[in-house]
Each structure stands twice: as C-alpha cells, then as structure tokens.
C-alpha cells in the first residue's frame, strides 16, 4: 500500500467544512427558503482558517491535508 498526497485544494484541507448539516447550522437562515443540500451550492464550504466561504476547488498556502489521506492499493 502506498499513501499518496491529495491535491492541495480546499476540499482536502482540514480547515474546510462543507457538510450540508454543518453549513445549515453555521449559515443563519439558509434552511428557511433554501438548503445546503441543493446542487447550486456545488461543494462549497467554510474555511475556518480564513473565515471565507469558498469553492472546494480553491487553494491557498495555508493548506493542511486532512488526517485521512487517500490510499492506493
């Protein structure tokens, strides 16, 4: 088995949160007339490091890979 580095994008960063339930709790009013489950959100989420709402495809120099990394067998 070989551990591989994941792309340095927000979706793989430990500071990034894009779970729909988390976002609905964090973004006031989101579920009143919409939701975090709709496709318009794509995979966007909150960066807890920069306090920004970002695309999962974004990246920055403060990237830190999540604890769980992809494994190739």
């Amino acid at each position: 088995m070989t551990g591989v580095a994941v792309p340095a994008k927000c979706r793989n960063c430990r500071h990034f949160r894009n779970d729909p339930a988390y976002l609905e709790a964090a973004i006031k009013g989101l579920s009143a007339m919409s939701s975090a489950w709709g496709s318009v959100r794509a995979d966007d989420g909150l960066c807890l490091h920069h306090d920004r709402y970002l695309s999962a495809e974004a990246s920055c120099r403060d990237f830190q890979a999540e604890a769980v990394t992809a494994i190739l067998c």
Binding site: S34, G38, V40, R41, G45, Y53
Partner: peptide, 9 residues
Amino acid sequence: VSAAIAISG
C-alpha cells in the same frame, strides 16, 4: 437564498 450561497462560494 440559493443564489446568494452559490455566488458567495
């Protein structure tokens, strides 16, 4: 609301 969340991201 859906547009706001989409564009902000």
